[in-house]
Design a protein around this nucleic acid. Structure first.
Lengths: 218, 218
DNA sequence: TTCATAAACTAGCGGTGTAAGTTTTCATCC
DNA sequence: GGATGAAAACTTACACCGCTAGTTTATGAA
């Protein structure tokens, strides 16, 4: 089959189909041939539009990251902006949990991920945090969000009561975690995020805030 | 080549070699044939000792998790125990960063991971935290530690100054992060952990602690 | 001594990413 | 309007992957 009158593939169509496929079936079984079949095409045809499989995954990952809202850093106080960002970040990742193991390794060269890091870091520095501190805060929150989206705590436990009853006295109810997965994971995230922000506010008051209030006019 | 006089493979030897191989070359290129070659054997021979590749990875992951120290929960106050545990957990994972993406998906059926979850949850409940809260706290800290070990914040940025200069005004120094990787990641972890524990202590004082101090004798 | 088991082997299946080269269509320029 | 070159599909093929099946032989127990 030669070149068709109307191109059957575009980068956007490939990325959308890949996202849907990964969402539905998971990363381990995602292959170029499988993706191509979904698009009504043979595997190698994808290489007219992407150089490698990883380039496709990068595009998927960046689309997911692109849904994260960092606008709070332009309008809110730093703590409120961090909170909004963290929740938005979490929502974006948990909407596509199967790509998270790939995405969580770092921003690499993905524009949306870099733009997000830029907005967060810039917002914190503007709020008065010392640059090194701003880096640490951005990293710490990324750790927390990525970790929460990656290893859904609740899903990580097997649904097998006998496994726990014998050897793990405190985990007798662990097999039930899966039932309440969403509320467990969200509750843990809410608790952890609140605690983190609480601690950061204390740190801000101790270091940055005192300077401001000691020299209110400049 | 038939059965040798002295078995050339044992589960332990396989796990040790696999760990070394993954540490040295990473998960993506880790294969059963490559591991077998390292052991002076053909690929399928491994299946006399493990049922699947994943079973080998589980054994590697559980060995790594086995190095985590949870003894603080038997001797220290809950906050100190959490801190010791988190640092020990982080040390164990960063010693073998390449296995973290596999390990971070959850404890599954791995004994060391389950024993760790059991110790943490039990310790928190014993300290007075309500069971649901104990679950959330354990999960939140696991998110944070796993996230920090998985996507080393610093390593996640490419060493290419030109990439940042053009489009990301606040990231002009980002290509330098790799130089200071360890101190950046450790600083971010220390800051985040302190903030988390600070926030949890406040929560404890607000909910659990007040009950205790309101009824000191009962 | 017999014999099941253990632990290695070889052969092979269906799948993987991707390189190479082919064919046909489309868009553009003389 | 015909020639030309790029684009976008194709087929073929390579080296590797996890794993199954069946084979061979040394071991250890009956």
């Amino acid at each position: 089959m030669p070149r068709p009158r109307q191109p059957r593939l575009t980068r956007q169509l490939i990325v959308e189909t890949a996202t849907a496929l990964i969402d539905a079936e998971g990363l381990p079984v995602f292959s170029t041939r499988r993706l191509a079949a979904e698009l009504g095409v043979r595997g190698p045809s994808l290489y007219n539009h992407f150089a490698t499989k990883d380039e496709i995954l990068d595009a998927v990952a960046d689309t997911v990251t692109g849904a994260v809202d960092t606008s709070g850093f332009a309008s809110r106080d730093w703590a409120g902006a961090l909170r909004d960002w963290a929740w938005s970040y979490r929502r974006a990742l948990t909407a596509h949990p199967n790509i998270v193991p790939y995405l969580a390794q770092g921003p690499g060269r993905r524009p949306a991920a870099l733009a997000m890091a830029d907005a967060v870091y810039g917002g914190l520095v503007r709020a008065g945090w010392p640059p090194a501190r701003a880096t640490h805060i951005g990293a710490a929150l990324r750790y927390f969000v990525a970790g929460s989206a990656l290893g859904s705590f609740a899903r990580g436990f097997v649904e097998d009561p006998e496994l726990y009853a014998a050897h793990y006295p405190h985990l007798r109810q662990a097999h039930r975690l899966a039932e309440h997965q969403q509320s467990v994971d969200e509750g843990a995230f809410a608790l952890g995020l609140d605690a983190l922000l609480h601690g950061l506010a204390a740190e801000y008051a101790r270091t940055v805030g005192t300077v401001e209030s000691a020299r209110p006019s400049g």
